[in-house]
Design a binder for these strands. Sequence first.
DNA 1: TGATTTTATTTCGAATTCGAATTAATATAA
DNA 2: TTATATTAATTCGAATTCGAAATAAAATCA
Lengths: 136, 136
Amino acid sequence: MKDLKTITILFRAVDRFQSEISSSVNEMGLSLTSFMALEALYHKGPINVAQLQSKVLIANSSLSYVIEQLENKDLIHIESDHHDRRRRVCSLTSKGMQIMNEVYPKHVRDQRKRLDRLNHDEEIELQRLLKKIGLD
Amino acid sequence: MKDLKTITILFRAVDRFQSEISSSVNEMGLSLTSFMALEALYHKGPINVAQLQSKVLIANSSLSYVIEQLENKDLIHIESDHHDRRRRVCSLTSKGMQIMNEVYPKHVRDQRKRLDRLNHDEEIELQRLLKKIGLD
DNA sequence: TGATTTTATTTCGAATTCGAATTAATATAA
DNA sequence: TTATATTAATTCGAATTCGAAATAAAATCA
């Protein structure tokens, strides 16, 4: 293969997911990245900013802004780590948890609709191929 | 499959490509989307704003800003379509063409390095799977 | 120990992106 | 024809994102 057609197709596929997720979470007053941050905390529990950044895939300076917004909305709580006071640990507030409990199952259903165009083996194979090209 | 792990892997893979391409084109004073616009014009020849938007995957209002930047840098030229004066047709200037001739082959080589972790059949299969989930 | 380096995060100003409203031209309908 | 609707693109203000510099704490070194 000589061209970058694969990248074009890859970007387009991601754009479909992002557009759908964005317009859905925007209705709740959240940006895509805010939602991704909540999602990470929902799955991982309390984690510090650097760990969150590895999930949310934006610049660290941008993440500072994002978590400030989420804190203002009382969706997350931030406190310094006792053992390393450089670190700040983020966690869902009860309000944040409540909202994710309401919203996340539907999010999964919606996005699974698209993914379920692949059968199980195809999806596993897609994961394998994406992991291969996604490694650093 | 019940979870959205595939989306996580998908987003992460795209982020790797975008980060690499961004840091490379930023050195020439271009944003990722500016570069994607130039790329589209390089491949498709003169096209109007709507056609460009379908390649660049940003909001139309954002694209207006992007093509204005590119015009200011004398990398593209914009003129209205004679047959439909609502439309504005963009094309590479000779300077834009010259830069893409210089830069694009290396861009392809760099990105192919990552893609070439897949053999030919795997890449074809990846395209097929991504197309399936990327359709509207 | 005190000095230096590294790590974690935020601040800052500028660039980019967005959605909603607007403008302007074309297409359709009456 | 003259409304009316649709389409193409831009403008505007606000939100988000970025990279570079700053801050502050911890780790390493001498």
